[in-house]
Amino acid sequence: MRTFALTGFASLGLTLAACDGATGDAAPPAAATPETSAPAATSTPMPSGEAQPITAIPAAMQGRWGMTTADCDPDEAANKGLMTVDATTLRFYESVAEIGDATLAGDTMLRGTFAYEGEGMQWTRDLTLSLSGADTLTLEELGDDAVEGPRLYTRCA
């Protein structure tokens, strides 16, 4: 399986998808079953202290985030690295993720299960969102079929 993470696509559906090589078309992974959707270990540990259950993404993590400067350009039609975060969703180039069960550790790290929909497919993904300062947000997917490593986003001006 090849991932698109190295080419700058922020869409979880695209970054998780297998590429058929001939057309470049991608399809999101199959939906996780209840038996396989248990949270996996993360390479980014949760901060010490008690995690608090939440139903909304903290305001400090909300906004428009880009993997590159071009992703933040509203005139750029192919800003595939743009992630828009509001109180309950993460929006990517070709997919949307809605918050499910989630916890917040301190004010800077959210860990939760998100329900995705994109390109006619639905799936779930466990992930962490980590805020570093006011302008850097890191997204890291968890699980066997997750994209490896963290993806860094910078707040769009």
Score class of each variant (00 low, 15 high):
residue 105 A to D: 06
residue 116 Y to S: 11
residue 91 R to Q: 14
residue 79 N to Q: 11
residue 126 D to Y: 01
residue 58 P to M: 08
residue 50 E to V: 08
residue 75 D to M: 03
residue 58 P to N: 05
residue 123 W to F: 11
residue 81 G to Y: 09
residue 46 M to S: 12
residue 129 L to W: 07
residue 90 L to V: 04
residue 63 G to Q: 01
residue 77 A to F: 07
residue 105 A to E: 05
residue 70 A to F: 07
residue 65 W to M: 04
residue 68 T to G: 01
residue 36 T to H: 10
residue 127 L to R: 09
residue 56 A to L: 12
residue 117 E to I: 05
residue 89 T to F: 04
residue 136 T to V: 15
residue 119 E to D: 13
residue 43 S to Y: 00
residue 43 S to M: 04
residue 83 M to P: 06
residue 54 I to P: 05
residue 54 I to Q: 06
residue 36 T to V: 05
residue 32 A to Q: 12
residue 45 P to S: 04
residue 35 E to I: 01
residue 63 G to P: 07
residue 136 T to F: 02
residue 118 G to A: 09
residue 110 L to P: 04
residue 127 L to F: 02
residue 134 A to W: 00
residue 97 A to P: 00
residue 112 G to I: 10
residue 52 Q to A: 14
residue 92 F to C: 05
residue 127 L to I: 11
residue 31 A to D: 13
residue 120 G to H: 07
residue 89 T to H: 15
residue 73 D to H: 03
residue 136 T to H: 09
residue 80 K to N: 10
residue 36 T to M: 01
residue 50 E to R: 13
residue 136 T to G: 02
residue 94 E to G: 06
residue 64 R to P: 00
residue 80 K to D: 09
residue 44 T to M: 14
residue 133 G to M: 03
residue 38 A to V: 08
residue 78 A to R: 14
residue 81 G to C: 07
residue 85 V to E: 12
residue 88 T to A: 13
residue 124 T to F: 01
residue 100 G to M: 03
residue 135 D to N: 15
residue 96 V to W: 00
residue 94 E to C: 00
residue 103 T to P: 00
residue 132 S to N: 14
residue 80 K to P: 00
residue 78 A to F: 13
residue 126 D to T: 15
residue 81 G to T: 10
residue 60 A to D: 12
residue 134 A to E: 15
residue 101 D to N: 10
residue 47 P to A: 07
residue 83 M to H: 02
residue 82 L to T: 06
residue 59 A to Q: 14
residue 40 A to P: 04
residue 109 M to R: 12
residue 91 R to V: 08
residue 117 E to H: 11
residue 50 E to Q: 14
residue 123 W to S: 09
residue 107 D to S: 15
residue 126 D to E: 15
residue 68 T to Q: 07
residue 127 L to S: 14
residue 38 A to H: 09
residue 124 T to E: 13
residue 71 D to A: 06
residue 127 L to A: 15
residue 130 S to V: 10
residue 41 A to P: 01
residue 42 T to V: 05
residue 65 W to N: 04
residue 34 P to C: 06
residue 107 D to A: 14
residue 112 G to L: 12
residue 109 M to E: 10
residue 120 G to Y: 06
residue 73 D to L: 06
residue 58 P to Y: 06
residue 103 T to Q: 11
residue 125 R to S: 13
residue 112 G to C: 09
residue 59 A to T: 14
residue 96 V to F: 00
residue 43 S to V: 06
residue 31 A to M: 05
residue 57 I to H: 07
residue 114 F to N: 07
residue 67 M to Y: 01
residue 107 D to T: 15
residue 70 A to D: 15
residue 121 M to Q: 13
residue 129 L to V: 04
residue 42 T to W: 01
residue 78 A to C: 04
residue 44 T to L: 14
residue 74 P to C: 05
residue 95 S to L: 04
residue 119 E to W: 04
residue 70 A to T: 08
residue 96 V to A: 08
residue 115 A to W: 02
residue 52 Q to V: 15
residue 40 A to E: 07
residue 73 D to K: 05
residue 39 P to C: 00
residue 61 M to Y: 05
residue 86 D to W: 11
residue 108 T to R: 11
residue 94 E to F: 03
residue 125 R to C: 03
residue 86 D to G: 11
residue 95 S to N: 08
residue 72 C to L: 06
residue 53 P to M: 08
residue 46 M to T: 09
residue 92 F to V: 02
residue 112 G to W: 13
residue 99 I to T: 08
residue 135 D to P: 10
residue 34 P to K: 03
residue 122 Q to G: 09
residue 102 A to N: 08
residue 130 S to L: 13
residue 50 E to F: 01
residue 37 S to F: 00
residue 31 A to N: 10
residue 65 W to I: 04
residue 113 T to E: 13
